Amino acid sequence: MPATRTLPTAEAVDLIDLTRELAEKELAPRVGEAEAEERFPREVFRTLGRAGLLSLPYAEEHGGGGQPYETYLQVLEEIAAVWSSVAVGVSVHALSCFGLAAFGTEEQKKEWLPDMLGGDLLGAYCLSEAHAGSDPGAMRTRAVRDGDHYVLNGAKAWTTHGGYADFYTVMARTSEDRSHGISCFLVPADTPGVVADPPERKMGLTGSATATVRLEEVRVPANRRLGEEGQGLKIALAALDCGRLGIAAVAVGLAQGALDHAVRYAQERETFGRPIIDHQGLAFVLADMAAAVQSARATVLAAARLKDQGLPFGCEASVAKLVATDNAMKVTTDAVQVLGGYGYTRDFPVERYMREAKVMQIFEGTNQIQRLIISRALKKDDRGALRVRNQEN
């Protein structure tokens, strides 16, 4: 059964209804075949783009949906409950637009953001490198100033939409300073020298293309640098706080989809003369699954509401990502157990849910990195203080 939601506006209710309709009519009939064939569903993103679902958290003045994160993340959930690869893609597209929307000049926003948010273009985010892992300060991709251009050389690993994106938001080193030597660039995919390797062969999310993107003497106009030179790491980390909320919401949706399927199966499958949901041992497993989904959702929305109110939310985003993705791994594993031997076959989607849940604990910062971020936040002097928003201000 669909999740019960408390939404902030009537418009948000309509958005959820629209998303559920699209998920049922456009996503559900395609997901099984596309994932089995490891085929990237580019046409699905055009459909979502035309419906306005690729631009929800950005300002209306630049072509966005003007929706709070509280609403945007619940839309992501609804998509993920049916097709996680697509939900991840929507989150990554939003992430790829962040640098321009948050740090671009007004001239840059007016020139490029409407097309990026309009629905026809799809973005990718290039931060990770094969040798650097969770340490962006160790990146080797370089951008060297050459007159009114920068020349980029390097390779970006694990790029979602690599080879299919229309534009790449690229972090590259412009000096040797570890913290202030990285800059951010908006690079059109058809720029000479931008080349994508064949997609990675992954355990799950096989309908999502993940590839290394190589930059070979790529000349980028200087006006495509976002923010100041050396501000790239700040942009990247701010974007990741938002991206972690996106992945956390995807994990909640994935877990909800697994729970829904397990409950339906348990209501229909009979042993010893009654549905297996009536057997306490299995009923308690389902109850724990439901509790895990609902607690993860509450954690994600609590962080989203902090962001919507303009309050610090970085630590809470890490908590949400940690809780939601660990819970998704447990819930999807239990869904396989509920279906028994059938759950281990590809005749039912729960084995795919379990494979997809695993990577949620890895990308947008591994859950070990999230624990590091949370523990460091606990050391700060102000963490023990109650943060209260003055509603009169």
Rank of each mutant, 00 (worst) to 15 (best):
E129W: 00
S295R: 14
T4V: 11
R142G: 09
A328C: 11
G64T: 04
A302S: 12
G154D: 01
T191W: 01
D148R: 09
G118M: 11
G343I: 08
G118D: 09
Q231P: 04
A296R: 06
Q67V: 03
D197W: 01
A3P: 10
L95W: 14
L306Y: 08
E351A: 14
D347M: 12
Q337P: 00
A209I: 03
A155I: 03
S183D: 04
D308E: 12
K234A: 11
A3I: 15
C126R: 00
H261P: 03
C97M: 05
G118P: 04
L237Q: 07
T159S: 04
E111L: 13
L117I: 06
A102Q: 12
D334G: 05
A138D: 10
G162H: 01
P57Y: 09
G246Q: 02
S134G: 10
G163T: 08
R30Y: 09
E176T: 12
G119F: 06
G384C: 05
D177W: 10
P136C: 05
Y58F: 15
A317C: 06
P312W: 07
P221F: 04
A262Y: 07
A292K: 13
V331L: 08
T299M: 15
A335Q: 01
N393K: 12
K109T: 11
T333N: 11
G181Y: 12
H261A: 14
R352E: 06
D347G: 14
G52D: 05
L27M: 06
L301H: 15
A51D: 01
D115Q: 12
V195K: 10
M289L: 05
G32S: 14
Q309M: 12
L54N: 02
L215K: 00
S128G: 07
K25E: 14
R225V: 03
E351T: 14
A81G: 10
M1F: 12
A34S: 15
G137K: 10
A320Y: 00
E356V: 10
G281T: 10
A266W: 03
H62L: 14
T212K: 00
R269P: 03
L100Q: 02
H180R: 15
A155V: 06
G257Q: 04
P41C: 03
A357S: 14
I235S: 06
V323N: 05
A155M: 07
T6L: 14
A172Y: 03
A222L: 04
R346A: 15
H261E: 12
E217G: 09
L378S: 09
L254E: 09
A304Q: 02
Q370T: 04
N327W: 06
S318Q: 02
Q391V: 13
R219Y: 02
Q294C: 08
D115C: 04
A251D: 02
Y58Q: 05
G227C: 10
